[in-house]
Design a protein around this nucleic acid. Structure first.
Length: 491
RNA sequence: CGGGGUGUGGCGCAGCCCGGUAGCGCACCUGCUUUGGGAGCAGGGGGUCGUAGGUUCAAAUCCUAUCACCCCGACCA
């Protein structure tokens, strides 16, 4: 393994892959497009997951598990939904292998063809709604607020670690409601959770808004999204929340009896965030030394590197810290001692910087003489000496500051690269130079959207909730703008 | 699916044009010296060169086929 990572400025794509693999977040799996999430990366995912899960539970949602396999026929029940996913479904056609009669290895036993082929879930709306049909009879059964944390498979042509893999992990919530208003409220409530976790926990500033019809989920009435800017100025859809209206209820004939004894189709939402967010964390905060993790999700918030000539020295450092580290941990700080033998401190510094640990704690003889320890911030590289007995409070303060600083850096970057334009020429030059998002007027016509995409590859990332369209005209057609939208090139 | 490229110890590569039985860097193992920014020296282990055929006295090298992966384009969380 070579030492550093490819510089961001030299080759962004390679930089990203280098960071992901060298920080040991993930590795390539043996099947094309698959990914192994390594323990360090999985720990990150667990932090992200629990931030969401706690909030889902606090708002009345419960977790469950629905099967991986879906009857092929289910997928075709909702017309738009089929169109959206048919092209990327893995299909199980047989259930048995046999020794190859003509040679080595195994072949599919042709005798074992399935009566009805099954699809590996690309998303679970269809199985879930088939079950909801059984479970929902009365308004008393509503709302039904279920979430699941599972893997899904979408057979993608081009894949990238975390951002787009054939199989990925996510959370998918599926809710059923008695009224359209309630479903709408739910979709927005979830979007707010997504925004909060993205910004407050992962330190990733996001635009929130509505997807255009072209970009919305197949089968949804409308889709809300959080949209983030990566450090190469490209857009990443970081989470979506769909108001499905009665589309799936109608497709699966899910009705309920209202309080006044009418029969009505239920109203639905679905919403998801995926391991893609781990890629976003790397791309939003990382630098040429590797990851920079926001303290709230960092597997280790502090790593201790003892400095010494031999094992004896290291032991005396650890002894020096006895009590102190316990106090730090008692503050709820995730602290890891790197007491590996035979690896130089310099090597450890670089390794933990690659892994993005927010604070490094160095202790050597110089510190011990003065009864201090040395703290180094990963975000700024700043080094400070602090008295041993103030360590806990100082770390807490630093972690808090790093969390804010990472958010602010990302926000400043995003804002500096989000330009409001009026002319299509300006629009094109910004998009072509890949220098950011463009905010501009749009006449609301899908043809305009398609024409712009055709020419520039930029898409409408979202229609922000806050709208000011007075006197605004469409950047492309010149007609009065229906919305002010955010354009960008997307991952 | 269209265009381009690559398959050689764990990783990154050289060797191929001009056949002669495999080498370099990193990583790994052992020992000694080291340790506040990726340590040094010495010794050592590991590859039938993607796969299958063919040509040849001889194939990593030439020919044919095949598979896999990567990059660029059309689709996508």
């Amino acid at each position: 393994m070579s030492k550093g990572v490819t510089a961001k400025s030299e080759d962004y794509g390679r930089w990203y892959t280098d960071v992901i693999t060298k920080a040991q977040l993930a590795d390539y799996g043996p099947v094309k497009g698959t990914m192994v999430i390594r323990p360090y990366g999985f720990s990150l995912w667990e932090s992200v997951k629990s931030a969401f899960d706690n909030r889902f539970k606090a708002t009345g949602h419960v977790n469950a598990y629905f099967p991986l396999f879906i009857p092929k026929s289910f997928l075709s029940k909702e017309a738009e939904h089929v169109a959206g996913f048919a092209k990327e479904c893995a299909v199980v056609t047989h259930h048995r292998l046999m020794a190859n009669p003509d040679g080595d290895g195994l072949v599919v036993d042709p005798e074992s063809a399935l009566e009805e082929e099954v699809v590996v879930r690309p998303t679970s709306e269809t199985v879930i709604w088939a079950m909801y049909k059984k479970w929902i009879q009365s308004y008393r059964d509503l709302p039904l607020l279920i979430n699941q944390w599972v893997n899904v498979v979408r057979w993608e042509m081009r894949t990238r670690l975390f951002l787009r893999t054939t199989e990925f992990l996510w959370q998918e919530g599926h809710t059923a409601h008695a009224t359209a208003e309630e479903a709408e409220e739910e979709a927005k409530k979830i979007l707010e959770i997504y925004r909060e976790v993205a910004e407050d926990v992962m330190a990733i500033p996001v635009f929130t808004g509505l997807k255009t019809d072209a970009e919305k989920f197949a089968g949804a009435e409308h889709t809300y999204c959080i949209e983030a800017m990566m450090s190469d100025c490209r857009a990443l859809q970081a989470g979506t929340s769909h108001n499905l209206g009665q589309n799936f209820a109608k497709a699966f004939d899910v009705t309920f009896q209202t309080e006044d004894n009418r029969e009505e189709h239920v109203y639905a939402t679905s919403w998801g965030v995926s391991t893609r967010l781990i890629g976003a964390i790397a791309m939003v905060h990382g630098d040429d030394k590797g990851l920079r993790l926001p303290p709230r999700i960092a597997p280790h918030q502090v790593v201790v590197v003892p400095i010494g000539k031999n094992a004896e020295d290291v032991n005396s450092v650890l002894e020096y810290l006895t009590g102190t580290l316990e106090a730090v941990k008692a503050e709820g700080i995730r602290c890891y001692v790197d007491d590996r033998d035979g690896v130089t401190p310099g090597f450890k510094f670089n390794e933990w910087e690659m892994k993005g640990v927010p604070v490094r704690l160095e202790v050597g003889s110089r510190d011990m003489e003065q009864n201090v320890v040395t703290l180094v911030r990963r975000d700024s590289g700043e080094k400070v000496s602090v008295p041993k007995d103030k360590l806990g409070e100082e770390i807490l303060r630093l972690l808090d500051e790093i969390q804010k600083s990472l958010y602010n850096q990302a926000k400043t970057f995003r804002d500096e690269h989000t330009l409001t334009v009026e002319s299509y020429d300006e629009f094109k030059s910004i998009i072509e130079e890949k220098s950011g998002f463009v905010k501009c007027g749009w006449d609301g016509d899908p043809k305009t959207e398609a024409a712009i995409q055709e020419e520039t590859k930029a898409t409408i990332r979202c229609i922000p909730f806050e709208q000011q369209v007075d006197d605004l005209s469409c950047v492309y057609s010149g007609k009065p703008a229906k919305y002010q939208v955010v354009f960008g090139k997307a991952y």
